[in-house]
Write a protein that binds this DNA or RNA. Structure first.
Lengths: 229, 229
DNA sequence: CGTCAATTTGACAGTCATCAATGCCCGTGG
DNA sequence: CCACGGGCATTGATGACTGTCAAATTGACG
């Protein structure tokens, strides 16, 4: 498994990295030092980056594709915790503490990631204020969105979660739009805490609210109508 | 509402604060400066500390009692996001960004909290490495436990969640134990993402696994039996 | 255009929320 | 210390929602 190659950091990848939330706010010196620490890896769809409980020496930043973070119960059933896309970091919370991963990470499709040595970044953050500040920002953002996720899980039904997702990912604020899902529906289902069948039925329900689905393309007649669900 | 008095920091409160995750690792200088920033407030049961959307100038650390963080859907239904107890901080993620709260905070019982000015702590964290490091630690811990919460919500049934809670809060690792719940069952229900009735029924189910409930006292015949659920 | 995987649809069961009624605990005041 | 009251917790009945399994259909991609 986990066929991956170490690659050189090409300009496109470097560009994504520089714009990622973790690095975007750094000064020139810190930025260079961080980029020098980065190793680019590529994984094929379904490859496992690491498993729950594995000893942890690295954290990651997604460059292209999507990585699925999930956990298993003892029956082997999977539950997604987060879907990380371009620019997102994961396992960064190990910068503070901990020597093993607390969830599984799997490439949802062909993926390239930047890998950072935890100990080296930890040391760097001790020296450079702006790196510590950036880490705090990232953690705060993820904490906030994770808390949002709990609230959504506990308050909203399947159609409401899907409507919410569409609203949150609309380029415009009102009227009619078309969206193209950036990944498979089964991945979206997991992200929303649903079985794929439940996502499909939620879309069916939303058809009555002016939502048309054809493959990955989704047409929305009236965004404001979705807010009322 | 929100009847509260500003109090001086007495020695017991100071002691709790010094042992809290946020302050426990600080050096003498930073510790003093942080404590000097703290204002102690007290709230009565059901008082609202702040509401979702309120402009935010402070974050908090619980000294005594429990504070409920929750959000509302548009029908007015509530969902708990976290229950903060002694030593726990909340709204600390606003140290990085944001000028308003993202959830409601309510005293679950009579409560005393330490309040910190966000801007001042932000400035302090810029100067003192150990404060930034402590903030990173706190955020990492909360992020981890919040991700755990999502996984538990999505993977476990009500009796499993309750069993998990009992296991996590057992002073010993095996055999028979008695636990006293630190708060009302309705609060535990919310913490576990359940309606109070569902918690009650989960306890009924666990009776078949050697769990006896009388008021806040819970007797467990065999902890290892709970792990098998 | 064909093949395989992804998605949809149907049928069903299980879990949990909700509402209502009853019983119990806990803190209050005597 | 005991009695009392009000809120908390339990229990029953019911329904909504979603997970699961299986089969049919569609879509993606070579």
């Amino acid at each position: 498994m986990a066929v991956n190659k170490v690659l050189n950091l090409n300009s496109r990848e470097r560009n994504i990295l520089v714009k990622s939330p973790l690095l975007a706010t750094l000064g020139p010196g810190s930025l260079t030092r961080m980029i020098d620490l980065a190793t680019v890896l590529s994984f094929e769809a379904r490859d496992i980056l690491f498993r729950d409980g594995d000893p942890a020496d690295y954290f990651y930043c997604v460059l292209t594709g999507y990585v699925r973070l999930y956990r298993l119960n003892k029956d082997g059933r999977e539950a997604d915790i987060r879907i990380s896309g371009s620019g997102d970091t994961f396992a960064e919370s190990l910068l503070a503490m901990g020597d093993s991963y607390h969830y599984n990470a799997q490439a949802a499709e062909n993926v390239t990631v930047a890998r950072f040595d935890l100990a080296k970044v930890r040391a760097l953050a001790e020296q450079e204020h702006d790196i510590a500040r950036a880490v705090i920002r990232c953690l705060s953002n993820y904490l906030r969105s994770t808390m949002d996720c709990i609230a959504n899980d506990r308050l909203q039904t399947a159609p409401q979660r899907v409507a919410q997702y569409l609203i949150d990912n609309c380029p415009v604020s009102g009227g009619a739009v078309s969206i193209r899902l950036p990944f498979q529906k089964s991945l979206l289902a997991g992200k929303l805490g649903l079985a794929p069948e439940a996502l499909s039925r939620a879309f069916s329900t939303l058809r009555g609210n002016g939502v048309t689905v054809r493959g990955r393309m989704i047409q929305i007649n009236d965004i404001d109508a979705l807010r009322q669900i």
